[in-house]
């Protein structure tokens, strides 16, 4: 990647997700230093050994439960102590709740909004306040095509991602004058453990493909990116169906 500075230090929240691992491998091959954050220590260690073998000079692992928002300031403090020159922050974590369970239980709905939306907003707010006075920082956040329009089969997940997308638009606008970029990634269907029980078809992409798209978008500081790019066309159509018709569809 030509536009990419050498020997960066990057942070990945949700570093044990399938796509995050592939993305981290690209940074490791480029010789970048990595700070990984996730819940499970053993899994983080597995990922760290892999990235060190692939060429990263240093990998630090931090465990955290992102839902515990009051821990965020201390988590960010530890990260800052690891490196004073972090160029990119990636956000990969999230859950795919069962829509029927969400409808039956406010607890499940609240948990989804907590993990996918509120905790990300909290971390981003803290980080934005820190990097606002610096320049050339990148925030890269994985949202979803599901956030582009609500539909009956997954609108709680869709709500969490849609609200996240709008939050990121505002943050991008705010940080533009600091010369920091905010990149929203909208993947379609990805063949990962999170979607293990789904029937797979032609629209499904591999974690490798999505990770490559994210890496390129991050290096170029793009605004909003669909991955794979054909989802831009699909979502353009979906978004433009009049609501009177859309509400009758079985989507």
């Amino acid at each position: 990647m030509e536009d990419k500075p050498k020997n960066e230090t990057i942070v990945i929240f949700g570093a044990t997700s399938a796509v995050a691992q592939k993305l981290a491998q690209l940074h490791a091959q480029a010789g970048d230093t990595l700070i990984l954050v996730a819940r499970n220590k053993d899994r983080l260690n597995t990922v760290a050994s892999d990235l060190l073998t692939r060429g990263s000079p240093q990998v630090d692992c931090l465990t955290s439960d992102f839902d515990i928002i009051q821990d965020h300031p201390s988590l960010l403090k530890i990260i800052e102590e690891k490196s004073s020159n972090i160029s990119k922050y990636y956000f990969f974590y999230g859950i795919l709740p069962d829509q029927k369970e969400c409808e039956a239980s406010w607890e499940v709905t609240h948990k989804a909004l907590m993990t996918n939306l509120l905790s990300v907003m909290s971390l981003l707010t803290n980080i934005a306040n820190r990097i606002e006075k610096e320049t050339n920082r990148g925030l890269i956040v994985v949202s979803s095509v599901a956030g582009d329009r609500g539909r009956q089969s997954n609108y709680i997940y869709g709500t969490s991602k849609g609200a996240l997308t709008i939050f990121l638009q505002g943050l991008r606008n705010r940080l533009h004058k600091s010369n920091c970029t905010v990149t929203t990634i909208k993947p379609g269907f990805i063949d990962t453990p999170m979607t293990q029980d789904f029937k797979k078809g032609a629209l499904w992409a591999t974690p490798e493909k999505v990770a490559q798209d994210i890496y390129k978008a991050a290096c170029k500081g793009k605004n909003e990116v669909y991955s794979p790019s054909f989802w831009m066309v699909i979502m353009l159509v979906i978004k433009n169906i009049p609501e009177t018709i859309f509400k009758r569809l079985n989507l």
């Binding site: 399938a18 597995t46 990922v47 050994s49 892999d50 073998t53």
Partner: peptide, 18 residues
């Protein structure tokens, strides 16, 4: 196929564990 992590590569001796 998702169990594809490298574990250790001794580049001196040419021993790879994965």
């Amino acid at each position: 196929r998702s169990l594809d992590h490298f574990i250790e590569f001794d580049t001196e001796k040419g021993i790879l564990r994965c």
